[in-house]
Amino acid sequence: MFKVKDIVIYTTEGLCKITEICSQDFNGHSTDYYVLKPMLSNRPTIFVPVDNEQLVERIRPVLSADEVHKLIKAMPDQETIWIENSNDRKKRYKEILSDSDHLELVSLIKTLYFYQEELQDSGKKLHLADKMFMEEAEKILYEEFAYVLDIEPSQLIPLIVGVIEADE
């Protein structure tokens, strides 16, 4: 059970603050809701029914600083997950974004980053859908990392590179 003032991640919406837990009446039936306010965007407030397990599962607490550092150290060992068929790739990448599993997000970013590098070497660009998947995965992961580590998002990539290079 989450509490008011908890900072959480809500799937693709990213970092949110639970501003209240309220009851709303609809057709004589009262339902309790978590009220989530996205912290880093002007997106609208999100109402998640407390008794809807499927939607509540999409809310999770932010990682600890130790967990973030462990994930950063694990980045070089993450496998890439390129899928040749574009329809299958879109379906799988949407699932990864929806699930917000950290290791899968790292794999997704790594895969698309390396593929983008290959394409650039031959004078081509990443397909728009793949670029959007990469940007969304980076947003989800990097917002949380920057918040947890109490740094500016612009400082995150140099920090990740420094941690990875120190481990080599």
Rank of each mutant, 00 (worst) to 15 (best):
T31C: 00
V50G: 01
K139T: 11
I46M: 11
S41N: 02
R43M: 09
H29R: 13
V68F: 04
K139P: 01
E152Q: 15
D99E: 14
A65W: 03
K125M: 10
P44E: 14
L126M: 08
I46Q: 07
E79Q: 14
H29G: 00
Y142A: 02
S100G: 00
L103V: 10
I72G: 02
T111L: 12
F47M: 15
V106I: 15
S64N: 05
Y33V: 03
M134S: 07
Q116Y: 07
L149H: 08
H127W: 01
E84Y: 09
Q54E: 15
S64F: 01
S86N: 12
T31W: 02
E84G: 02
F133I: 03
D150Y: 01
I140S: 03
F114R: 14
C16V: 07
T19H: 06
E144F: 08
K94W: 00
H69E: 13
D99T: 11
A137L: 09
Y34T: 04
M134W: 03
K90M: 06
P153Q: 13
H29W: 00
A129E: 14
P76A: 12
N52G: 04
D99F: 08
I96K: 02
E135Y: 09
I9G: 08
L119E: 10
A137S: 12
T45L: 11
I81V: 15
K91F: 13
V35Q: 06
E79G: 07
E95I: 13
V68C: 12
Q116W: 04
L15I: 15
S122R: 14
E84M: 11
G28A: 06
A129H: 12
Q120Y: 06
Q54D: 14
Q120C: 02
L141H: 02
S41Q: 10
A146L: 10
P49D: 06
E13D: 15
L97P: 04
N42I: 07
T19A: 05
S30D: 09
N42A: 13
F133Y: 13
I140F: 02
S98T: 14
L141I: 10
M39C: 10
A129C: 01
V68S: 05
K124C: 06
Y93M: 10
S122Y: 02
K17D: 01
P61L: 10
E136I: 02
R43I: 00
S122W: 00
I21K: 10
F133D: 10
I21D: 04
S30P: 00
V106A: 12
F133Q: 10
Y34C: 09
E57T: 11
S30Y: 05
V106T: 04
N87H: 09
L141R: 12
K37T: 13
D99L: 15
E84P: 00
I21Y: 05
R89N: 05
I96M: 06
L55A: 12
E95A: 13
E138C: 00
I9N: 11
Y33M: 06
K70C: 06
P49W: 05
M39F: 04
L55F: 03
